[in-house]
Design a protein around this nucleic acid. Structure first.
Lengths: 208, 208
DNA sequence: AAAATAAATTGCGTATACGAAAATTGTGTG
DNA sequence: CACACAATTTTCGTATACGCAATTTATTTT
């Protein structure tokens, strides 16, 4: 969360503890106006006084958890959107297309892959398509890890997934797996052929 | 967010206005313990008094925005995870496999598809695999919409995507699209052949 | 088992969130 | 421009968040 510069009249207490509530307030006002609601409308919808909402929008107070929860309900959004962290910057009403070969191939010793939609801002999912050149777990110095979850689909070939907490699993073409990506994992091709896979990571992920 | 049942000793005021803060408190305690932190450790990391943290964990108070922000920093998580909306209940260190034909085929007039990993709790992404039987937009009474984002990959055939805010786009096999799923959208097969697609929705989504 | 230490909770005074009503500002119309 | 009305902000009293120190409970050590 990027903090906005403190207002000129901020007290020293606010400088050290306001935790971004000016930014929150701006986001709140934006959400409200996007929905063509007045403070009174939102007060009715949320059960929070209009005066409180006004102060929150101007960063003059920090709402409590209970009020935040009421607010999310009143605005019909989830908490993540309320905090502007859930893809709020993802372009509304957009569709992006990834054509064959459109994205630059990235090559490592073990993989050749494209980061699909690398130019799309605010994505909550990171799709990648590519080929697994590694045919042995020994090709890897260590497991790959990143916070979140990961979906992998085998388009062709056979894929073996090694993880630090489970027995290896082997997938045929058309099969898929869903895993905790914070757990160490690596992907290897399991047959003579290099497996072709599609991977979707949650958030900005560098996958195996 | 699924609310836990109110505790038996809840006052009527808590029943109507606590906005899930017992659940929040439980999640907070879980996060803290997962990280092997005492209340004093977290107090130091976050700059919030241990007594306040204790009360928050037991649902005795609702933290203000400023404190919530400090807490997220102190725990090294983002706000979404703090509220238990970011897959907090997803099984750590897990991998699940979807074998060919494993899930029951669901059939509508326009699609035949499997909800992959339908038995996996706490998934942030909902993968679906299937066939698009509709060859015309006229097959649909209305657009499909659900909050969030959606990734669609064409395995075979040709797919045309109609959206309420953009010109239709047609994808070949191996191509994909990423879209705002709150915008009305439908998928149709574009050639003689029924297109085979893989769809990943953010969250629990019913896709087109 | 008793003693020592760590961890969590309680008590109490201060700061701030909060709501209702009043005041001010903004907008539209004649 | 004046007026009416809508929208937002301010005022003020009450409720609750919050931190520090004391107390209690839980865990570890002897």
């Amino acid at each position: 969360m990027i903090e906005s510069p403190p207002p000129p009249s901020a007290t020293s207490d606010e400088l050290t503890t306001d935790g971004g509530r000016n930014e929150f307030g701006e986001n709140l006002r934006k959400l409200r106006k996007d929905k063509k609601m007045t403070l009174a409308d939102l007060a009715t919808a949320s059960g929070i006084a209009a005066s409180t909402l006004s102060r929150a929008e101007r960063g003059l107070l920090g709402l409590t958890y209970d009020r935040l929860s009421q607010l999310a309900d009143g605005l019909g959004v989830d908490m993540a959107e309320l905090f502007g962290t859930g893809g709020a910057s993802f372009q509304k009403n957009s569709i992006s297309v990834a054509r064959l070969g459109e994205f630059e191939l990235q090559t490592t010793p073990n993989y050749t892959y494209e980061m699909l939609f690398s130019d799309v801002w605010g994505k909550a999912m990171t799709p990648m398509a590519g080929v697994v050149k590694a045919h042995s777990r020994l090709a890897f110095d260590d497991f790959i890890r990143h916070p979140g979850q990961e979906f992998v689909f085998v388009q062709s070939g056979q894929l073996t997934i090694y993880t630090e907490a489970n027995e290896p699993v082997t997938l045929q073409a058309g099969e898929s797996a869903y895993l905790d990506s914070s757990m160490g994992h690596v992907y290897t091709s399991a047959g003579d052929e290099d497996a072709r896979i599609l991977v979707v990571c949650l958030g900005r992920g560098d996958s195996a």
